[in-house]
Design a protein around this nucleic acid. Structure first.
Lengths: 254, 254
DNA sequence: CATCCGACG
DNA sequence: CGTCAGATG
């Protein structure tokens, strides 16, 4: 089973850039989407349905902002929209599809880059999300959490750790949170298969030709519950897909 | 002397579409511009200066809105910014360049299409503008007024007079105003040289492929003071220039 | 330096 | 159906 996660930075813009052709080629069983920046009725989901996908969306209340989605070839037994915490669910950041024991979540962690208020909210989100996942893992240990965590974990996950040590997304407290989060019983699947590999990023600023120079950050992850450890058969980052300032990240499970 | 008038619907967008190449080719002595939608400092006027133009702007207070300009190869003796009526000058709608006895004005008449309040303001503008021009003609009878009047004068100036009889821009009171305005002692220079010609328009809606089907309106004019009558040597509309929803209109004076 | 909105036309 | 601004990232 091939699961991709992709922050599209606007699903409508991404579709104009050929997302559907890419999807047909990549042909994942499940695509986790972040930053749809659209209400469901604004998304031409027939294009995905024509490829055999069932489509599920959780949009922010604010138009053009945030929003997650899940496309799945198999029809899920259950879709869980949001996490029941109002300030999170208003912003359309969490969506989950359950397939028997296997549970697959799309998450979009808030960015803190626009100022203190949003950084504070990001840290609050991280605390609440960690608690939510701790509880969920008890019920659904075979959990995949794919998405944009808006955090680089280690120095090899960012092109310039020195100059970014005070930048939201690479702050010590954010990196520490990600370590703690994994200790809840999750595996960073990319690192499972690519330990120590350098220059592997999933996001590049649009500014200053950052992507052409691979001056990026790895902030998109496929986290797998440890119960899935033996079923993980691969994980990848796909920097050649050019529909967004992010690229897709994938995990394979047997 | 070749004078063009062109509502650019955003001078920055028009420049991205090759306005400067067009200008080099058309090579007018004076270009009257409407809807710059920019503050002077946002306009790359060096590109015009490189072609030998002096540049003058009158922008609206509101950013990205309205705004007129004049480019001139000859340096004017005087530039008159606005008309001294505050509600008009706040919106950057009138700019004049004087060259000895010859006076050339760029005008952008308000649109009434967004609702009653703006239609009311348009009618008020028309009254105030008529009075302003009546007075100005006494002082400067050799006056050219080029610009977007946002009014079609007669049934041959619009592709569908019947269905537009209640549409702002072709209302009976607007058409009557334009007749009265000409009676102040002005000549619609295009009609001087193209009496009765059909399907000659200067604006097309972006909707429904209107331009490809030439379903347009003639709302851009080069009005000439009757004192200039004997000096008028031609007038044209240039629908092949594609930098805006309007096209340029020109007048030649000896 | 992109995406999207909403105002305006 | 475009342009522009402003919010957001």
């Amino acid at each position: 089973m091939k699961i991709f996660s992709y922050n599209l930075n606007g699903i409508r813009a991404a579709m104009r850039k050929g997302l559907v052709d890419w999807l047909k080629e990549a042909n994942p069983d499940v695509l986790l989407i972040q930053e749809t920046k659209a209400q469901p009725e604004q998304i031409e989901q027939e294009e995905f349905e024509a490829l055999g996908y069932h489509c599920y969306w959780h949009s922010a209340e604010k138009k053009g902002y945030s929003g997650v989605g899940i496309l799945s070839k198999l029809k899920p037994d259950h879709i869980e929209v949001g996490c029941g915490i109002d300030y999170i669910d208003q912003e359309g950041r969490i969506l989950r599809a359950d397939f028997g024991d296997l549970s697959i979540m799309s998450v979009y962690v808030p960015s803190g880059s626009s100022g203190d208020a949003r950084q504070d909210l990001k840290m609050k989100f991280l605390g609440d999300f960690q608690q939510y996942i701790r509880d969920l893992l008890k019920e659904k240990p075979q959990l995949i959490i794919g998405g944009d965590f808006n955090i680089c974990h280690t120095e090899i996950d960012i092109h310039n750790p020195k100059s970014n040590k005070d930048t939201s997304g690479f702050l010590p407290e954010e990196r520490a949170w990600l370590s703690e989060f994994l200790e809840e019983g999750l595996i960073d699947s990319f690192r499972q298969f690519h330990e120590g590999e350098l220059d592997r990023y999933s996001w590049w600023s649009y500014r200053a030709n950052a992507r052409a120079n691979n001056k990026g950050w790895r902030i998109d992850y496929q986290m797998a519950g440890e119960a899935l450890k033996e079923r993980l058969s691969g994980a990848e980052i796909w920097p050649d897909a050019m529909h967004s300032d992010h690229c897709p990240v994938s995990v394979d499970i047997d």
